[in-house]
Each structure stands twice: as structure tokens, then as C-alpha cells.
Simulated scan of single mutants.
Amino acid sequence: MQQKQITATYAEAVKAIKEAILESRYRAARLVNKEVLALYYAIGGYISVQSRAARWGSNAIGTISGLLQQELPGLRGFSETSIKRMRIFYEAWCSMFENRPLSADNLQNSIIPVGDKGHIEIRPLATDELPPETLDAFLAVGFTNHYEILAQKKDVEQRLFYIVNCAMGFWNGDKLKYYMKDDLFGKRGNMPNNFATTIANVDLRSKALRSFKDEYLLDFVNIEDPDETDERVIEQQIVHNIKNFIMALGSDFSFMGNQYRLVVSEKEYFIDLLFFNRRLQALIAIELKRGEFKPEYAGKLNFYLSALDEYVKLPHENPSIGIILCKDRDSKTVEFAFRDINKPMGVATYRTSSELPKEYQGILPEPEELRKLM
């Protein structure tokens, strides 16, 4: 008995020390990243002043990069492309950090010293233009992801949106590219729903609106004829690629199962997909439909949500939320179907890999022709 207590004590000690080490590493990584961004911003500013003011000749940045490699053998991250990206980074954000736009008039008076004997002043990136939490997120995102956002998004609001979400969700490069390709910014909060009348708590309602998108890109689902495919086929491909589907849903979703069994009055019912969302602290039931939304779908989902709240939901959790994921929908039909429903639900659409944009249709061969060619 005593030995077990000692073992438990050691386990607690190991857990505490491990958490302290991980927390310390995380804070150290944040500090290092903060310094790296400040360095790249300062170098980018110096390069911008010199190159944009035509003080250097052609191929200056490539020459400087090569000379740096000679001065510091093994130096990484300072190729010609990388230095140009530092200039882009500076020019994208200098109006925020210097409180003035970049122009030919202020190039000569840059805060970064210039000239043959000048030096590059590395200062902490701080600004009154951003709230503290947004600035913290900005400094936590790695330079590679910063550049990816700058390269794909021109609007400042969109850039800051992806920066904040990248920091909060600990997105790697692949996740960031996926969410930008899927236009997470444009789809947030646009899904037709009845949250306003079914979720009384304002904070929870706001979180629910931000947790679901109007349309989901299921580019891992590959079916030749979506209109002739049973929902179960789509469901199987989703389950087979569950990590990709969770990435499509967003952060904080945990998969609980497919064809989730409910028993009501000795009769069995099955929910297509069941998830739990940590941020919402609620069960999320998803019903898959291969065609257009129909009003009767809302009644069936309302029944499932009542059963989940009665038999599955834990006392501390919020009421379950239902999502009908279908190929198409009519907004007025959704509105009427939801009008007297008392459970929170919404209707989102999805696209699969087989659906090419109109501008690409006709360019690629048909599947049968492609098989013959192969």
C-alpha cells in the first residue's frame, strides 16, 4: 500500500515537472519568435529604405545574400528570397508599427539608420494600433506563416483574422493554407441558423456563430457523381479521413462516433456523425444529406437533439447543437423550417473534390476518358 502511495507521489511529481518544462519551452519559443520577428522587421526596413530609394544597383539583394553566406558560413534563413520577404513583411506592417504609411517622402527619414556607417536598430515590435491580445497573437506566429498570410490576403482585417486564429489554434503551415483556401474569414457566422431564438446566453450564442461555417470544403471526399451517391458513402469517406474533416470543421471539435446509437422507447435511432466541441461545451450532431435541404430534416434533427440532451448530455454541458450538412439549400425554406423549432441548429453546405469551378470545367478530361488514357 505504501509503495503504491510512493509511486503515485512520484507520478504527480513527474507530471508537475513535465508541465513546467513544457510551459517553459513554450514561453521560450514565444520569446525567441518575438526576437526573430523584430530582427526580420528591422532588416526588412533597412532593405526597403536602401532599395526603394534606388541607392543600390541591380541584383543588390542577391549579392548581399551571397556575401552574408561568406561572412557567416552555414547561415540559414537569409537567402535572396528570404531577405525580399523580410522587406515585404516590413512594408506590410510599418504603417502600424511606425504609425505612418510607407512613402517616398519618409524613406529618407526612416527610423532605421542608413548610410555606409549606419547600423540596423532592432526594436521590440509594439504599437497602440492593436489591442494587447492581437499584438500577442501577432508576435506568437512564425515568420513563415506571416509571409503566407501576406502573400494570399491583401486586406488588413483578413490578415489579422488569420494571424489571431493561427496563434490561438496553433496552426501549422498546412492548416493555415487549408483555412485560407477554404475562406474561413468569409464563411464565419454566415450559416443559416436559429441560434438567436434558441440560445439565450449571449456569449455562448456568439461562440456558436463563430464555430460554424456557411460552407465546408471536403476536398478529401472523392466521388464521381455526388447526385447519385448515398449519404453513407460520403459518411464513410469522412470517417476514413476524420482528421481532415475535423480540420475542415475547425478547432475544438472531438469525434465521438458515426451512426451514433440512441434508444428511445426501445426503438433505435442513429445519428450520422457526433462530435463534442470544447469551446461550446456541447454535443454537435451532424446529419449528412446528399441533395437539397428539405423541411422534414429539421424535425428529425430536433428529435435527435432532444434525445441527446435527455440521455447523453452531462449536467454541466450546454444543450446539444445540430448541423444539417447538405449539397444545397434555399434560405427561405430553411427559415420556415426553423421557425418553431426549439433546439439550436443550422444548415451548411459542402463541396467535394469532384466539383471543379466553372472556369476549369472542360479543361480536364472526363473520368472515363482519363481512365482510358492511363
Rank of each mutant, 00 (worst) to 15 (best):
T81M: 10
T81I: 04
T81E: 05
I83W: 02
I83T: 05
I83C: 10
K84G: 00
R85D: 15
R85N: 15
M86D: 01
M86P: 03
M86L: 01
R87T: 15
R87W: 02
I88Y: 01
I88N: 07
F89D: 08
E91H: 02
E91R: 12
A92D: 09
W93T: 06
W93M: 13
C94T: 14
C94N: 07
C94G: 03
M96N: 04
E98N: 07
E98C: 06
E98L: 11
E98F: 00
N99L: 12
R100M: 11
R100D: 05
P101Q: 10
A104V: 14
D105G: 04
D105S: 10
D105R: 15
N106D: 09
N106M: 05
L107V: 11
L107P: 04
Q108F: 13
N109D: 07
N109F: 13
S110E: 09
S110I: 04
I111N: 12
I111Q: 09
P113R: 08
V114W: 08
G115M: 08
G115A: 06
K117I: 01
K117W: 11
H119M: 10
H119D: 06
H119R: 13
H119V: 08
I120C: 14
E121T: 14
E121Q: 12
I122S: 10
R123Y: 06
R123A: 09
P124L: 03
L125E: 12
L125H: 04
A126W: 10
T127S: 14
E129P: 00
E129I: 06
E129V: 08
L130H: 06
P132D: 09
E133H: 15
T134W: 07
L135R: 11
A137C: 13
F138V: 01
F138G: 10
L139C: 06
L139Y: 06
L139N: 11
L139S: 05
A140F: 03
A140C: 02
V141Q: 09
V141Y: 13
G142P: 02
G142S: 07
G142W: 00
G142Q: 01
F143S: 03
F143W: 10
T144D: 14
T144F: 08
N145S: 14
H146I: 05
H146S: 08
E148P: 04
I149R: 03
I149S: 00
I149V: 14
L150G: 02
A151E: 15
A151N: 11
A151L: 13
Q152R: 15
Q152L: 07
K153I: 07
D155F: 03
D155R: 08
D155M: 07
D155I: 05
V156Y: 05
V156N: 09
E157D: 13
E157R: 03
Q158L: 07
Q158Y: 00
R159N: 03
L160E: 03
F161I: 05
F161D: 07
F161P: 09
Y162V: 04
Y162F: 13
Y162H: 00
I163E: 00
I163C: 01
V164G: 09
V164R: 11
